[in-house]
Design a protein around this nucleic acid. Structure first.
Lengths: 149, 149
DNA sequence: ATTGTAAATGATAATCATTCTCATTAAGGA
DNA sequence: TCCTTAATGAGAATGATTATCATTTACAAT
């Protein structure tokens, strides 16, 4: 079992339960963003059926602890959660397969500092999400397009 | 009446109705981000009571036309809409009074181009929202803090 | 101006993601 | 192993948003 998972839960002062471990594991090892419902059914398929309420509770808890982040994938009408890899909050979110790709650099930080001064604005939070297709899905989309023609 | 409002609706191929005009006017002239419910009650107070469903419909329509953008103000649990001033999608959103402040520069564009190439990722959309307190609210918050001590 | 027609609106019911409740179960320190 | 407290499960409740459909309105053509 991935030792990162227990570590993350312990650091957040959370009890280690089967449910929390399974949910975090799914997000960390899959490298994907998933909605509560997707997680619920993924676990059910694996033979680990937890209550949907527990999934929601766990996701909210892990988000508050800074372990996960959430965002609404455009057009989905629901929230998706993903692992932030130690506070790292900037990634590419594939709307095709759900993959998330960590960005090597964080462009926002320096910019936000400049904003604070230039606009006398007390920045308390920000979101910077990039949606699109990962290399694999991009390739697939290109092939399908060719089929149509 | 603000000529910008009719112009925006016409350009989007939308019929000009009392309801649409009133809703857009509220957002453009107030320079604020508002939720559907806030708009509903603001109009009711003004003596212009439209159906809540119409407010939702209009907001969705204007968002699809690119005239408005929506975002979830953290912790609010609902969507807020704001005028994008001709596709301009980057602004400061005050969580105190709702004011929105247009950014003079758009830091994301150049960065996204670089992302496309470096990660072979087909960017189809992005959100970059900055939350915080505008100069006025920042001042007020500071004063209240002093009172507490 | 009047009319015709498709689109917009209003009122309310329906939907559905998310949260709450509370009885039961499990985690983990003593 | 026991005890205490927190976590979970199942289903009800909530509440923001969407759908329905009868009525009204915008606006192009007459």
């Amino acid at each position: 079992m991935n030792p990162v998972i227990e570590e993350q839960l312990k650091q957040a002062g959370l009890k280690i339960t089967r449910q929390r471990t399974a949910i975090l594991s799914l997000l960390i090892e899959g490298d994907v963003h998933l909605s509560a419902e997707q997680i619920y059914f993924a676990l059910k398929t694996k033979g680990e059926a937890f209550g949907l309420a527990t999934v929601y509770r766990t996701l909210t808890l892990l988000e508050q602890a800074g372990i996960l982040a959430k965002t609404e994938i455009p057009g989905s009408g629901r929230q998706s959660y993903f692992y932030t890899a130690g506070g790292h909050r900037h990634q590419l979110l594939c709307t095709g397969c759900g993959r998330i790709i960590l960005l090597k650099s964080c462009p926002a930080e320096a910019f936000l500092k400049a904003v604070e001064e230039e606009y006398d604005f007390a920045v308390t939070g920000h979101s910077f999400e990039i949606f699109g297709l990962c290399p694999d899905c991009r390739k697939k989309a290109g092939q399908e397009e060719r089929h149509v023609h």
